[in-house]
Each structure stands twice: as structure tokens, then as C-alpha cells.
């Protein structure tokens, strides 16, 4: 396929960086800042695009693992089970769109929080610990995904995203 998405992004970034940027009024700070962020955003997209599917799958798997742990230790609920089944199905469907994987994860997150609101108060601490522990994987993956934003004070300590989506759970 010519031009493929990577080449398209490469061309746009080059045009903006080398030609358009020189034509933007240096005194127009708003335009300067937005152009800088536009080029940086496109660069980030270009580096992440090939890994998008594995990334979405990894996040969905994280949510599923958390939900399973929660269900095991705090009891079942119909809505949670249904949402877990939907994510499980999304992860086994080779033809499913990325957006649908992400939507199934969103529904599972909603089901988890509904479940948290409904469980017996005596299980609150257990549930909270599961959520805190179970959130770590997806937070780490999302930090790695967006590391190029420059918001990480110690970016060199963040593992490469390619390493974090290559576990046996995330083929």
C-alpha cells in the first residue's frame, strides 16, 4: 500500500517541521505552541501506530484480570460476569476493531465500579486492595505509551512500551 499510514505521517511531519513552521509568525506564541504540539503529537502517533492493537488488547486483559480477582474474592454479579464475557470474546475475535476492544474494556470498568458500590461493606478493604494492585499494570502500560509527552520526571526508568505488551497474556 503506497503511501502507507507511516509514510503519510512522515510526510506531514516533514512538511510541518520544515516548511510550515518557518512561515508561522514568531510573534504569534499561540500558533507557535500549537504547531509544536501538533508535530509532537503526530510523531508520537507514528511511533505508536504499529503497536496499537497489542496495546488495546493488553489494557483489556488487565481489566479482565482485575475483574476476575474481584469476582473471586468478593462474589459474583450478573452484570460483571456479562462484561467479563464480552471482553473475553473481544480478545478472542481476530476480526474485531480496536475501538470495539476499547469499548468492551470501558463497559467492564463501569461494571467493576458498579460492583464495588454493591458489595458488602465488610469486603470494602479487600476490594480496594484488589483494585489498587490490579490497576498497576494498566497504569504502567499507559505511562510507557505516553512517555514521549515529557511528563515523566524519570522517563529513563519507564520500560519501553514494546516490552510491556509482549507477555504471554498479550501475544
Amino acid at each position: 500500500m503506497v503511501p502507507d499510514p507511516d509514510l503519510q505521517l512522515q510526510m506531514v511531519i516533514k512538511a510541518l517541521s520544515e516548511t510550515v513552521s518557518t512561515a508561522v509568525d514568531p510573534g504569534n506564541k499561540v500558533a507557535q505552541e500549537q504547531l509544536h504540539l501538533s508535530i509532537a503529537t503526530l510523531g508520537m502517533m507514528r511511533s505508536r501506530l504499529p503497536m496499537t492493537r497489542r496495546f488495546y488488547r493488553a489494557l483489556a486483559q488487565d481489566a479482565l484480570t482485575l475483574a476476575k480477582d474481584l469476582e473471586e474474592k468478593t462474589g459474583q454479579s450478573g452484570a460483571l460476569t456479562q462484561a467479563m464475557n464480552d471482553v473475553g470474546q473481544a480478545l478472542t475475535d481476530p476480526g474485531i476493531e480496536n475501538e470495539a476492544i476499547e469499548q468492551s474494556r470501558a463497559r467492564l470498568h463501569e461494571a467493576i465500579t458498579d460492583h464495588l458500590a454493591q458489595i458488602d461493606k465488610s469486603l470494602g478493604t479487600v476490594a480496594r486492595d484488589i483494585v489498587m494492585q490490579g490497576s498497576l499494570g494498566s497504569i504502567e502500560r499507559q505511562r510507557a505509551w505516553f512517555v514521549e509527552s515529557g511528563f515523566e520526571p524519570n522517563a529513563d526508568r519507564i520500560p519501553a512500551i514494546s516490552e510491556l505488551i509482549q507477555t504471554p497474556d498479550h501475544p
Binding site: Q34, L37, Q142, R143, W145, F146, S149, E152, P153
Partner: peptide
Amino acid sequence: HQDIVVGWLAMISYPLMQQLEETLK
């Protein structure tokens, strides 16, 4: 007028979530 700035700022959410998890713990 600053959607791209606001969208860029959204990426700080994950270091903040890490901080939230660590502080809560």
C-alpha cells in the same frame, strides 16, 4: 481554542494515577 494543549495535558493523567495509587497505599 486550545484543544491540542488540553489533549496534550491529558497524557499527564497516568503519572498522576501512579501517584494516586502510591499515595493511597
